[in-house]
Design a protein around this nucleic acid. Structure first.
Length: 647
RNA sequence: GCCGACGUAGCUCAGGGGUAGAGCAACUGAUUCGUAAUCAGUAGGUCACAGGUUCAAAUCCUGUCGUCGGCACCA
């Protein structure tokens, strides 16, 4: 007897083990037809596998949350089969479902191009029409290796060899003539795969994610339960593209980049206005949180980077500089400067001037530090990943006892800053010790424990990010998402016992002995460039009034209003608002459109009536409602709204 | 750095061996208008850069630079 409990609480009993398909059929013919897989005690399984014990079960249909992953995984298999049918000799490797689609990695001497997509998609549809049953088989590792080697699938054979050593049977899924090594689960037949899929792009990808390995050709696709869902997804992508910071940055005249300064940003007046507003906002929060601000050199002798350990690890990523009269040869013993790639060694130099007493700790030393790193060419992306950037960096020098309260305070500060900037949600990752690192295991144990405790005390939910810590210490990574779903690390909190040791930082303790301080590296925005990019996409350029580079446009309706409009603009500007005056010879409709496209939050229209009554007609971005206010009322309201949000 | 695509007017794009194109923007003039495009005219280009093939190259080939999408990297 097998008793199966359904989601509604009802129990079905069977004389013998039944498959998911039989269970669905027993419940009803409609469900039998719609069934895609079955969930047994939370585990997703093929419909054909038998359930031999009492369990909680749930039939998965296209409406289930789990269905999409199944559909996408099946789409990957259909893609692989289609490609192998169309391009004989192509090897298959891996093809998983992803967040909104799937991909499959192939090995083939000739490149795939997007021109191949229609043909491949057509063949995938044919495979769906064939309605091939997906059959799971278990093979011995040796049979599997033999099969893949004889069919020229070197990568699959390598993989089977590796998992074969674990002594498990090899799970093979067969669809018609075609088969693939795969743990499943899968849909019962290719005919269950909705045709709502589309191939999206080709890209290179390294075998097993390692740049030392061969590069494979990856074909990305997206797949959905219905045509409508697919269409909605494609529309979403189009919408996201309109939020792209590169596009909005140009449209709003915020910044540009050009060939002569790859990886650096030319900030235009409006973009720089935004930057300064953001910087002053952060500065205010730092001051309120007991930070001091410093400024350290751009060019620093390589000796300091050797001492800090950065030279050894990041030499290739540093820009060097030497005066032309002395340098260019950079012979042994000559002074070579690195343009600073980070601020921490310099902050330690400030800490090291004079003797620090434990009574002075913690010292929270902040710098809006301009750094340069030679980022790999392929890593560059708009203003989000650049070679010249400015961090809202700070280092907290403290005793070990102060680590947890300082870390907790930082998390609270960061949460407040993010909230004020419109980010109520963010991801926090906990990155622990990397394989190559400085410091003893004991030190790392201590640092990791401290960081975890702090995050816990701050009530943060952590996602484990194993082996991704900095070489000197573990970190918390605060991650924001861009408009097209890419994650960007912005904030960070890192505990470091290594740098103070290497650079010989010390304070005098209560016991009159010298001690090493702990050092917390922390940033909230990360880099201004990246954060402004994220901010632009987050708001799609429609900034709240306090952040907007241009806050108010004063636009005249006819020339009769020019004098008064000038007065209005001057008065607003005198009150600290960022104003443009538009007395151009155009219709008001044209001006409204122009300033709306420029994403100016407030338009004040000035006509004859306003000039006579000393009022303004207020129009907000995103609304076509108008409100007529006395100039002084409007001014007071706007000034209040434009205030930088305090802690 | 690796794989692929792309680079034509300020922007968005067409043209794919035989005189360099459109819309928007810009400029000039007319128009004085009430909340997302007034009308007319004018000007604007070493077709990324460098070589090569050809009677002839924006167009075909090679290289370089850059951008874009991934991968790898990210102190």
């Amino acid at each position: 007897m097998v008793a199966l409990t359904l989601p509604d609480g009802s129990v079905r009993t069977f004389e013998r083990a039944v498959s998911g398909a039989e269970l669905a059929a027993a419940i009803g013919p409609g469900l039998a037809k719609a069934a895609l897989a079955v969930k047994v005690d939370g585990e997703l399984r093929d419909l054909a596998r038998s359930i031999g014990r009492d369990a909680k079960v749930e039939i998965v249909t296209a409406k289930s949350a789990e269905a999409l992953a199944l559909i996408r995984h099946d789409a990957a298999h259909a893609l692989a089969q289609a490609v192998q049918e169309l391009y004989p000799g192509t090897q298959v490797t891996f093809g998983p479902a992803t967040e909104d689609g799937f991909y499959y990695d192939f090995v083939r001497p000739a490149p795939f191009t997007p021109d191949d997509f229609p043909k491949i998609e057509q063949r995938m549809r044919e495979i769906v029409d064939r309605n091939l049953p997906l059959v799971r088989e278990e093979w011995s590792p040796s049979d599997a290796v033999e099969h893949f080697e004889s069919s020229g699938e070197a990568y699959k054979a390598e993989w089977v060899r590796e998992i074969g050593t674990r002594g498990e049977a090899i799970s093979i899924y067969r669809q018609g003539e075609w088969l693939d090594l795969c743990v499943g689960p899968h849909l019962p037949a290719t005919g269950k795969l909705p045709k709502a899929f589309k191939l999206m792009k080709v890209a290179g990808a390294y075998w097993r994610g390692d740049a030392k390995n061969a590069q494979l050709q990856r074909i990305y696709g997206t797949a959905w339960a219905s045509e409508a869902d697919l269409k909605a997804y494609l529309t979403r992508l189009e919408e996201a593209e309109k939020r792209d910071h590169r596009r909005i940055g140009r449209e709003m005249g915020l910044f540009h980049v050009q060939e002569e300064a790859v990886g650096s940003v030319f900030w235009h007046p409006k973009g720089w206005e935004l930057w300064r507003t953001l910087e002053n906002f952060v500065r205010g929060r730092l001051r309120a949180s007991g930070y001091v601000e410093v400024r350290t050199p751009q060019l620093v002798d390589r000796k300091l980077w050797e001492a800090s350990g950065h030279w050894e690890k990041f030499e290739q990523g540093m820009f060097l500089a030497a005066p032309r009269s002395a340098g260019a040869r950079a012979e042994e013993g000559e002074r070579v400067y690195a343009i600073k790639p980070m601020n921490c060694p310099c902050h330690v130099q400030i800490f090291n001037q004079g003797l620090v007493s434990y009574r002075q700790l913690p010292i929270r030393m902040a710098e809006f530090g301009s750094c340069h790193r030679y980022e790999p060419s392929g890593a560059m992306h708009g203003i989000m990943r650049v070679r010249a950037f400015t961090q809202d960096d700070a280092h907290i020098f403290c005793t070990e006892d102060q680590i947890v309260p300082e870390a907790v305070a930082f998390c609270a500060l960061l949460r407040g800053v993010y909230r004020a900037l419109g980010f109520d949600e963010f991801i926090v990752k906990f990155a622990d010790r990397p394989p190559v690192r400085a410091g003893t295991d004991e030190t790392w144990d201590k640092a990791e424990a401290a960081l975890k405790n702090a995050a816990k005390a701050a009530g943060l939910e952590l996602i484990h990010n194993p082996g991704e810590g900095a070489f000197y210490g573990p970190k918390l990574e605060f991650v924001l998402r861009d408009s097209i779903g890419r994650d960007w690390q912005c904030g960070t909190l890192q505990i470091d016992f290594v740098m103070p040791e290497r650079l010989d930082a010390a304070y005098v303790g209560e016991d009159n002995q010298k001690h090493r301080p702990a050092m917390l590296h922390r940033a909230m925005l990360g880099s201004f460039e990246r954060f402004i990019g994220i901010l632009i996409e987050h708001y799609a350029g429609h900034f709240p009034l306090w952040l907007a580079p241009v806050q108010v446009a004063v636009a005249t309706i006819t020339q009769d209003g020019d004098a008064y409009a000038g007065e209005v603009a001057r008065e607003l500007a005198d009150s600290g608002l960022r104003v443009v005056l538009d007395t151009a010879n155009e219709k008001i409709g044209y001006k409204v459109r122009e300033h709306s496209l420029a994403k100016v939050p407030v338009i004040l229209a000035i006509g004859k009536r306003e000039a006579e009554l000393r009022t303004v007609s207020v129009r907000r971005l995103g609304s076509n409602a108008q409100e007529t206010l006395a100039l002084q009322d409007a001014l007071a309201r706007l000034v209040a709204e434009a205030e930088i949000p305090g802690p």
